[in-house]
Design a protein around this nucleic acid. Structure first.
Lengths: 128, 128
DNA sequence: CATTTATCTGCAAGATTTCGCAGATATGCA
DNA sequence: TGCATATCTGCGAAATCTTGCAGATAAATG
């Protein structure tokens, strides 16, 4: 019977890892492939040390994996379908905001931007 | 240009609301219909005051909606698809854990339990 | 080796969440 | 009205997260 509790516990733990603006963006950016820390820091406009800390957390939870290329550390999503799943979440948000025209526009524009980012990429796995 | 940032900000905010074991379970339980605070408190085995606080937060973020029946406050998901989306998240977790047989079993059992919960119900209004 | 580049780690202050509890409301009923 | 039930709210302590910064590693290069 604690199956439900255990599941909720594990799921909430992962959600907590994702639930940070920087980390959501990292997942978004990594949807298109792999990037090194410096590139991500520039994309998000935050200090590289911070990106590194985010990545350490995501790595500890096996959301991303690391490969090396010389002195650069390349990161990629452990499960590309995670990005697709997040995108589905945005669609739900967008629908929820249907009574608020202004924010709905933001969702729509942002979601399309995000969706397009990975459109022209060979993805390996698909959600569901 | 800050479309991406705004989107990430909003999404992470909602994720933060969901990212708590109790609240994940509440969403799970509400998948089958509406429940009052006392019923949820018993299902989760936590004080009613705490459930009330969780619901206040989820209500503020429009994840749930409230109706009244006498002195009871009935809650239901503002967007039932949210529960389905979370379930997809569990499936991703399960896949991620494929190298860890023990925890994979938990995911599988729990996910099925959860998925079944909403399978057999037209269901509205239930008293305990 | 010394230097530069790229990234990581440790730490402490500040901000945010969580949790229990006490008391406030609100409804229904005798 | 008085009382029980059902839920909400405010508050403070404890736990957790975030962030910047200083210093540690590690790889390539002169």
């Amino acid at each position: 019977m604690p199956c439900r509790s255990i599941l909720a516990q594990e799921l909430s733990e992962i959600l907590k890892v994702i639930a940070h603006p920087d980390r959501v963006r990292l997942i978004e950016e990594l949807k298109t492939g792999e990037l090194d820390v410096t590139a991500m820091a520039e994309l998000l406009d935050v200090p590289a040390a911070r990106v590194s800390q985010h990545l350490a957390l995501m790595r500890a939870h096996r959301l991303v994996e690391e490969t090396r290329d010389g002195r650069r550390h390349l990161y990629h999503l452990a499960q590309p379908e995670l990005a697709d799943w997040l995108l589905d979440g945005v669609a739900i948000l967008e629908h929820r905001a249907s009574n608020d025209v202004a924010s709905k526009k933001i969702y729509e524009a942002g979601r399309k931007l995000w969706a397009e980012a990975g459109a022209d990429k060979p993805q390996i796995g698909k959600a569901q």
